[in-house]
Design a protein around this nucleic acid. Sequence first.
DNA 1: CTCCCTTAATTGTCCAGACAATTGTACAAT
DNA 2: ATTGTACAATTGTCTGGACAATTAAGGGAG
Lengths: 238, 238
Amino acid sequence: MKQHRYEQIAKALGERITSGAVPVGDSLPTEAALCKKYRVSRYTAREALRQLREAGLITRRPRSGSTVTASSINSAFSLPVSSAADLFRYASDTRFVIGKRERIKAAGEALAVLGCRRGQEWIKLSGVRRKPGIATPVCLISVYLNMALAGLEKRIPCSAGVIYPLVEKELGVRIAWIDQKIEAVPLSPANAAALACKPGCGLRVRRYYYDATERLLEVSDSLHASGGFAYEMRLRRD
Amino acid sequence: MKQHRYEQIAKALGERITSGAVPVGDSLPTEAALCKKYRVSRYTAREALRQLREAGLITRRPRSGSTVTASSINSAFSLPVSSAADLFRYASDTRFVIGKRERIKAAGEALAVLGCRRGQEWIKLSGVRRKPGIATPVCLISVYLNMALAGLEKRIPCSAGVIYPLVEKELGVRIAWIDQKIEAVPLSPANAAALACKPGCGLRVRRYYYDATERLLEVSDSLHASGGFAYEMRLRRD
DNA sequence: CTCCCTTAATTGTCCAGACAATTGTACAAT
DNA sequence: ATTGTACAATTGTCTGGACAATTAAGGGAG
């Protein structure tokens, strides 16, 4: 069985990662360096790196090169999320009631959420999530959309369900993964008032939606009152 | 915001599939035909088709071309957790320093955590998780063990890593799934002092370990200071 | 009819090169 | 110390071409 050139290279690099020779956080050689080392064209080197990226071992960014992000590709437990309703369990029967639609330049709070370069333009939708028929909102929520989605923000109804399928449809791309970050934060009196609860603790859930090319397309930032809300999941062994 | 040529083509083809214009089982134009139709090089056409394949809409085979296999993109995500180190990412290099080992009868706080019958007997280990060389603890933690594990509690070293593999080994069973519950809670002054942080918010993570017969074998209840700690995960699409 | 073989259509792999887009870095300006 | 700017390194997109590998389809032999 002949192995293709790019597979050989991917295998060699992959082994250096899984063996720990190149630890998480370190960089692989640049495309140009790989071309030279293995005497191949850039196409072949890129194909090898693409395999590693699809395996989740590295991320790639212009000027930064290929950075190792994981040292293994096996999985013993998994959280199967079969539908939008599962992923956003609480959101499955709630509506995003949009209060404000604007274009912003990343700064201050938004900059902290997005983690992008200062001044980069984004679309921001903010409002609350509500359960139909219930007065107190489920959470405060801001959704940031990449400017590649310019125009979409006007076509989202003022009471929407889950947003990311709209993003996929708009660009004809596929969300390849979601990074999720959950944190406890103090509730400001203003936020507490908006959530109709006492000031104190809140649970902040931020989700980052990426396509296969590692492009960040959407970020959601939601704030729940503590007490009424817990984030639950079930991890199954494969 | 400019959309790339191959994205435009992928979107156009994708819409013909999702709209039903090209039903499942039918074929898309060949690469050569796409090159001609859209006036692009083969690289660009192939890149578009690659996107569709990665989205699971088509399969490709030499001589057969691109065959439509699904009319909508599947929306399943999963959280791959490759090891205890990944599941307890923060715990990967921390040690559970046990301060107290006792047998309890479910009541009060423990009853609320365990959700079992009042008075049921459990083993309770409590202490803190520490990063070696760092003074402030990572979290306060209590671990509850089912009485089926009686005796194990004395053999756990006073500074341990992850507990559930010990449980599996002791009983010769396999943890089949883990329920996880994350909540924001107020920090009592005592807890804040133990965590060496200001009173305010904390993040509580409770994990319930079940075997295949739905027997609850272990429960862990940990409390993190807000600020330094966020619970992060990456959900991948299958 | 069935099986094997040839043929050719189609995708897969690979090359060499070009320019665009992104962004880390260093340095200047405030 | 922060912000802006210019530069250059690196990946991203795209072209045009070549040959290899795979395989659907058709034709011939048994």
